[in-house]
Simulated scan of single mutants.
Amino acid sequence: MKLLQILKYFIFTSLFPVVSFAASVDTVNTYSKVMNKEIKAVVVKPNTYSASKKYPTLYLLHGAGGNYADWVKQTPDRETVENLSDLFSMVVVCPDGGVTSWYFDSPIDKTYQYETYVSNELVNYIDQHYATIKDRSGRAITGLSMGGHGALYLAFRHQDVFGACGSMSGGVDLRPFPENWNISKRLGPYSENPDRWEGNSVVNLTHLLVPNKLAMMIDCGDGDFFYKVNVALHDKLLDRNIPHDFIIRPGVHNWAYWGNAIHYQMLFFSKYFERNHL
């Protein structure tokens, strides 16, 4: 996407926030073999969509207590994701990640195997049913809060699937929150299973990275309760010489912040896809 077109979009939407585009929104039922159940997902197709072309795909994850429809219903501008899908000619997939899955495969609850579902089953479904680029160079993943953790977690562990990743207000370290968001129901109590909590916290997975393998953008408000863990992840990535964009802006853990942050995230991914000539 040309820089001038992007600048025109931001100027126009700031002056006329009710601008409407023509992206189409599908709600699909996908089947997870590993969990033996159907799972819903929203798929946003840009107005340029044609089965004769191939499009890059962004997997966009919701937070704890949310669901697959959050990103098309909860932003202050209800059409934010559709507008951005049009602008960047990008397919956006919003899967249901369970109320509190944290997007890993639970070692104690076989009904919560969302790492396998998103990184394998869902990606295969989308590639089979939509005109997508079936390569890591054409896939990015990001999300908010629990979904921010999930996006980085899945990208770090599945670099053959995703070429770019991001996080908005991500819970990138589970350990400071042993009593919150049902994490103990997925991993067992922290006091009894510290290794599981250590091994499933994004901040402890930076050893999986090499410089320039993943394009990465981390975004968090300075008033967010996850601010400190995001700064800690940023510092660790710096220590390991892992290039990444790190954005701190005024804001807290709410949809006003995420509705703004997704613009910058999708611009970042669009530039990544452009570098890959997509």
Score class of each variant (00 low, 15 high):
Leu3Glu: 14
Leu4His: 10
Ile6Ala: 10
Leu15Glu: 11
Phe16Val: 09
Pro17Gln: 03
Val18Lys: 15
Val19Met: 10
Phe21Asn: 07
Asn29Arg: 15
Lys33Gln: 13
Met35Arg: 08
Asn36Gln: 13
Ala41Ser: 15
Val43Asn: 06
Val43Ser: 03
Lys53Arg: 12
Pro56Leu: 10
His62Pro: 06
Gln74Thr: 12
Thr75Asp: 05
Thr75Val: 05
Asn83Val: 02
Phe88Asn: 00
Val91Met: 03
Val91Pro: 00
Val99Gly: 11
Thr100Arg: 12
Pro107Tyr: 01
Ile108Ser: 10
Lys110Trp: 05
Tyr114Gly: 01
Val118Gln: 00
Val118Trp: 01
Ser119Asn: 01
Asn124Gln: 13
Tyr125Glu: 09
Ile126Trp: 04
Thr132Val: 00
Lys134Ser: 15
Arg136Val: 12
Arg139Trp: 00
Ala140Met: 08
Gly148Gln: 04
Ala155Leu: 07
His158Tyr: 01
His158Asn: 10
Gly163Trp: 00
Gly163Ile: 05
Cys165Arg: 04
Gly166Gln: 02
Ser167Ile: 04
Glu179Cys: 10
Glu179Phe: 11
Ser184Ile: 08
Arg186Ala: 05
Leu187Phe: 07
Tyr190Glu: 15
Tyr190Gln: 10
Ser191Tyr: 12
Pro194Val: 04
Arg196Tyr: 15
Trp197Gly: 01
Ser201Ala: 07
Val202Phe: 01
Asn204Glu: 14
Leu209Glu: 00
Asn212Cys: 07
Met216Ser: 09
Asp224Thr: 04
Phe225Glu: 10
Lys228Glu: 15
Val231Lys: 11
His234Met: 12
Lys236Leu: 09
Leu238Gly: 15
Ile242Ser: 03
Ile242Lys: 06
Pro243Ile: 08
Asp245Thr: 10
Pro250Gln: 07
Gly251Ser: 06
Gly251Asn: 04
Trp255Val: 03
Trp255Tyr: 04
His263Thr: 02
Lys271Asp: 08
Lys271Cys: 13
Asn276Ala: 05
Leu278Ala: 10
